[in-house]
Write a protein that binds this DNA or RNA. Structure first.
Length: 688
DNA sequence: TCAGCTCACACTTTTGAATAGC
DNA sequence: AGCTATTCAAAAGTGTGAGCTG
């Protein structure tokens, strides 16, 4: 049996949470009309579903009131925010390889506001910032065309999941195991991204009793400084420098390292000198009269060239100048007014060799060291405060004009004590996408295996779905052979699904009897009003006989423009911009103080009845699968403070294909090989 | 021709098994 | 026998640069 959790991102992307500043910019810049908004090959025609109501969370160990109160209080800090900001100010690049590459900097979080006794699942996904392809030109990133077709959006589940709130809050949470790949046929569960595209990581905190019983609420967070451009080779020398200076694994490439340019050149010079010497020696061999040898002139010229090559290279022309004239990374971004939507997702937490017994301090040491090293070794860097180099996003022309209100990190480094905008939605209705501008939506899915059902031979599909898509599509669905085949043969099987919006929905086994939710979106209270209003789009999360409640999020058009590095437009934040962007950049502002984000609950997920937290029981027993809760009351909508960031709808699925064992393999391996008796014990694992 | 990608390479860190000492 | 500390080899994570590809 396979349990799949499919994610339906009918999401306006991260930028929307950044407020009206981006919106204003986007107003000035119409997205390039030739660029497809949603380049996925399997986009789904977005017909807003009638709202589907999800049962409110059923707190296990506490009253509902307390649960609701806590849900609104979840906060998350990006612990290595300063490091991210260092990179972001330059224009973060992330290497992606076929085998998968870790992110650096990694995403290190500190959670608070969780109920210590409840269990949560932490997810990481990465969504495209826009639908442009980028090229590094003139020292900055510029959009040069339309994005590649959307790839299946995969979600990385933190290996500790599910764990108690106390567990998550007692340590730094790191997603350093997540790997990025450009292999569209990747079967390792890595997050698949396109090279030379811009992405924004997101973190989701989902209340869950265990892997099968997700519910109680969902909180999603975006850290604007963590957006990056994917590359197969670094384009910006400053990024390379930062990576080398920050990443311990790259220590060898530092000036003092054995793999530094100087050392490598010297090595190569010695090597060739040895070769030349050997050749000379052999040439002197009176017995070898047949060998054609280089003339002394040739050898000398060669060595001379080597000597020249061994000289320390002149520093390249700085790709990022510290000039205010340069288009700032964060402000040059122009996110299309339409929200981008995620494509089909697949859980990416199944890194095969993930080790659950990893030393607790590994990543902390690594990155704290990185930060320290960075700050120490590149103090000038911090002081100088790079202007960001991300270009404007899409415009009508490939090049981008500076924004009207340029704000660079160099001139306005964010206050380290500031709170970032939260993505919050706890109210029943979530308005996510604009039917006008966002005619399609994609589904994201991630799956993980579960033991076969104990009592049923015919697979059943339990679906948690949050979608604004019409369940009935005019397009014939592409029937995946199974989850893996869908993933592995995506390019083939799905290629025929171009313009077949229901291709991905074919995987969406929607619970029957899903009740339509309140079709009337609640007006968002406290959120800035979008300068123009879309018809209230609806994002639905359908559960069996349950209703999902979304907050009425601000329209995505509110923040279509993400000022990259440290966008944090004051207009979207509940604090003064001055607090966000101190006038004087200083390294201290960049370190030791995480960026704090409060969450927006995006929807509630039903709390499923369950027995003891015995993994084997939970995963095998059909009765512990999501249950219908037809008459659960709908909690009142919670006014969202910040512009909305729509969440994934979640879909749980039992998959009949036992071959899909990659996701959550760590979970089982850990359980069985380490004799973990239950999920309760898993919370004590030291993973970080 | 060239931008972008792949891969081997050298180096470093991490991990876990083996071993020694108490 | 059991625990802890140390050692060491393998695995994994880095950027580099040559070569390949379209």
């Amino acid at each position: 049996m396979m349990l799949g959790v499919d994610v339906y991102p009918s999401l306006a992307l991260g930028p929307q949470c950044l407020g009206d500043r981006f919106y204003r910019v986007s107003q000035d810049r119409e997205p390039a009309p030739h660029l497809p908004r949603f380049p996925s090959t399997c986009d789904v025609v977005a017909k807003p579903l009638p709202h589907t109501r999800l049962a409110a969370p059923l707190p296990v160990h506490r009253g509902e009131q307390a649960a609701q109160a806590e849900k609104d209080d979840v906060k998350i800090d990006l612990e290595n925010s300063s490091l991210w900001k260092q990179f972001s100010s330059v224009g973060t690049e992330m290497i992606i390889t076929k085998k998968g590459r870790r992110m650096f900097p990694g995403i290190k979080l500190k959670l608070s506001g969780l109920n210590p006794t409840l269990r949560y699942i932490l997810l990481l996904d990465i969504i495209p910032m826009d639908n442009s392809r980028y090229r590094f030109q003139g020292g900055g990133w510029q959009a040069v065309g339309a994005a590649e077709a959307r790839l299946p959006d995969r979600v990385f589940i933190h290996p500790d999941s599910p764990a108690t709130g106390a567990h998550w809050q007692s340590r730094t949470i790191s997603f350093h195991y997540a790997k990025l790949t450009n292999n569209t046929l990747d079967a390792r569960g890595h997050i698949i991204l396109h090279s030379l595209h811009r992405y924004q990581p997101r973190v989701h905190v989902i209340e869950a009793r265990d892997m099968l019983s997700w519910g109680g609420g969902q909180h999603s967070f975006v850290f604007p400084e963590t957006q990056f451009v994917t590359v197969t080779a670094y384009q910006n020398n400053r990024i390379t420098e930062l990576k080398i200076n920050s990443n311990p694994f790259a220590k060898g490439f530092r000036d003092e390292g054995m793999n530094s340019k100087k050392q490598r050149d010297a090595r190569q010079k010695r090597k060739l000198a040895d070769m030349a010497e050997t050749v000379t020696t052999e040439n002197c061999d009176p017995c070898d009269s047949t060998q054609s040898l280089p003339t002394p002139e040739m050898t000398g010229a060669h060595l001379q060239a080597l000597a020249l090559a061994s000289l320390h290279r002149l520093p390249p022309e700085p790709s990022c100048r510290f000039t205010s004239e340069e288009t700032p990374f964060q402000d040059s971004l122009v996110v299309p007014e339409e929200p981008l939507e995620l494509g089909q997702a697949f859980m990416a937490s199944q890194i095969p060799d993930i080790r659950l017994t990893i030393s607790a301090g590994m990543q902390e040491t690594t990155e704290s060291e990185c930060t320290d090293t960075l700050i120490e070794s590149s103090g000038s860097l911090s002081e100088a405060a790079f202007p960001s180099t991300f270009p404007a996003c899409e415009t009508n022309s490939p090049s981008f004009a500076p924004l009207a209100e340029p704000s660079t990190f160099s001139s306005n480094p964010p206050d380290t004590s500031m709170d970032y905008p939260a993505i919050h939605s706890s109210s029943p209705i979530l308005s996510v996408t604009s039917p006008t501008n966002s005619p399609s939506m994609q589904q994201s899915a991630f799956t993980f295996p579960t033991p076969p059902p104990s009592s049923t031979s015919s697979p059943s599909y339990h679906t948690l779905k949050l979608s604004n898509q019409e369940p009935e599509s005019p397009f014939p669905p592409c029937q995946p052979k199974d989850q893996m085949s869908l993933l592995m043969t995506r390019d083939d099987d799905l290629s025929g699904c171009h313009n077949s919006p229901t291709e991905q929905s074919s995987e969406a086994f929607i619970y029957p009897n899903a009740l339509p939710s309140n079709p009337d979106p609640q007006p968002h209270v406290g959120a800035p009003q979008a300068p123009f209003a879309f018809p209230p789009p609806v994002q639905n999360l359908s559960f069996p006989n349950q209703a999902l409640h979304h907050s009425n999020l601000p329209q995505p058009a509110q923040a279509p423009n993400l000022s990259t590095a440290f966008p944090l437009p004051s207009s979207c934040l509940p604090f003064q911009s001055s607090s966000c962007f101190p006038s004087t950049p200083h390294p201290q502002n960049l370190s030791n103080t995480p960026s704090s984000y409060t969450s927006m609950e995006l929807g509630t997920i039903p709390q499923f009845p369950g027995g003891p937290y015995r993994t084997d029981v939970m995963l095998h027993h059909p009765s512990l699968l999501p249950q219908l809760e037809p008459n659960h009351p709908i909690p009142p909508p919670t006014p969202a403070i910040y512009p909305a960031f729509s969440s994934y709808p979640l879909r749980l699925r039992q998959d009949p294909h036992p071959s899909l064992t990659i996701p959550l393999r760590h979970l089982y391996r850990h359980q069985h090989t380490h004799a973990q008796p239950s999920f309760l014990d898993m919370s004590a694992r030291a993973i970080f």
